Each structure stands twice: as C-alpha cells, then as structure tokens.
Simulated scan of single mutants.
Amino acid sequence: MKRLMTIILLILILLFVSACGAKKVTHMGLNAEILEINTELKGFVVKSLDKDSILCEKCYISCESDNVYYIYADNETGETKDLSYNDYRVGDEITVDVNSVENGYSLTSRVQLITQRK
C-alpha cells in the first residue's frame, strides 16, 4: 500500500511539472522607446529602456493582431484613455507585453504610452 501511494505521488509530481513547463511566460511592462514606426506592417522598432531587458538594443514589435490593446494613462489625473496604433510617434516611450523575443522580433498584446501628453 505504501509503495502504491509513493508511485501515485511520483506520477502526480511528474504530471504537474510537465504541465507547468508548457505554459508561456508573458513579460509584462517592458519599457522601450519607439525608434521607427512601420505603417505598412503595423509595428514598431524599439530600443529597451531597461537594463538587461529581453528587448535588447533594437527589437521589432509587431502590432498586426486586431487584439492588440493600446492605452494611455495620465499621471496627473489618473485617467486612462484608449488609443489607436496611429496615436504613437517616433520618440514615444512605451511599455509592452511580450511572450518572447526571437531574432529581434516579438508579438505584443498591449502597448501603453508612457510619454505624457497634454
């Protein structure tokens, strides 16, 4: 009986470890500055503003998906405002959420404008 319980426990541990390994990790709130805006492919070339960021020196952030959420938060009033892709400019500081960066390319689900606008 004791041996059966040990085997069942080991199987459960293996299942748990394998299930956790399959999940994607989302890196949220990576700070970056927009260097270029590609209107044809709908994306940004950015440089990281954080030390040791996965975005590296230059990274292309694709915003092609219709599910990308664009937002702005006013630091003085605390109000948030929905934006569109066309509201961003070269030199803007942003935060982006990405799952991974491969060969200087990444997909995003959220872009938040950090640069404060009046």
Rank of each mutant, 00 (worst) to 15 (best):
V45W: 05
D92T: 08
T115P: 08
E40V: 01
D52Q: 08
Q116H: 13
L113A: 07
Y88T: 07
I8C: 14
T80D: 03
K81G: 01
E93G: 03
E79H: 08
N86C: 09
D87F: 02
I114P: 03
T80Q: 04
L12M: 15
G43P: 11
R110I: 11
K51P: 08
T108W: 00
R3G: 02
R117E: 12
L9R: 08
T80A: 00
I13C: 10
N86Y: 11
L15S: 06
G91W: 01
V90S: 03
D97I: 03
M28V: 15
L113T: 06
L107H: 01
I7K: 04
I71V: 15
E36V: 08
S18D: 03
I7V: 11
I37A: 02
T108E: 08
Y105Q: 11
T95D: 05
Y105A: 02
V46K: 14
A73D: 11
A19H: 06
E93L: 03
I54D: 06
V90Q: 09
V101Y: 01
V45N: 08
T26N: 09
S48I: 02
S48W: 03
T26I: 14
V96F: 00
R89K: 10
K81Y: 14
V68M: 12
D97N: 15
L113S: 07
S62N: 09
K47H: 09
I8T: 08
E93C: 12
K47Y: 01
S106R: 02
T77S: 15
K42M: 12
K42I: 15
K81W: 00
L83F: 09
N31F: 02
Q112T: 14
L83M: 02
L4N: 05
L35W: 01
S62W: 06
V68N: 05
E79V: 15
D87L: 05
L9K: 12
E93T: 15
L35A: 03
N99A: 06
L41V: 11
I34N: 07
V46Q: 06
D66Y: 10
S65C: 07
I114L: 14
S18C: 09
S53H: 05
K42L: 10
D82A: 07
H27W: 09
L12F: 15
L113I: 06
S106C: 09
K24I: 04
T39C: 00
D97F: 09
K118P: 06
N86P: 00
L107F: 06
S18F: 07
A19F: 05
T115G: 14
E93I: 04
E102M: 00
Y88W: 05
S65M: 13
K42N: 04
E79R: 10
T115Y: 09
L12P: 03
I37L: 00
V25I: 15
I94L: 06
V17I: 14
K23D: 12
V25E: 12
A73M: 09
S100F: 05
E64A: 13
L15G: 13
S109N: 04
I11L: 15
H27N: 15
E76K: 15
I13M: 06
Y88A: 07
S100E: 14
V46T: 02
D50V: 05
M28G: 04
D82N: 15
M5H: 06
C20M: 04
K24D: 14
L41S: 04
D66W: 11
L30E: 10
K81Q: 05
T115R: 09
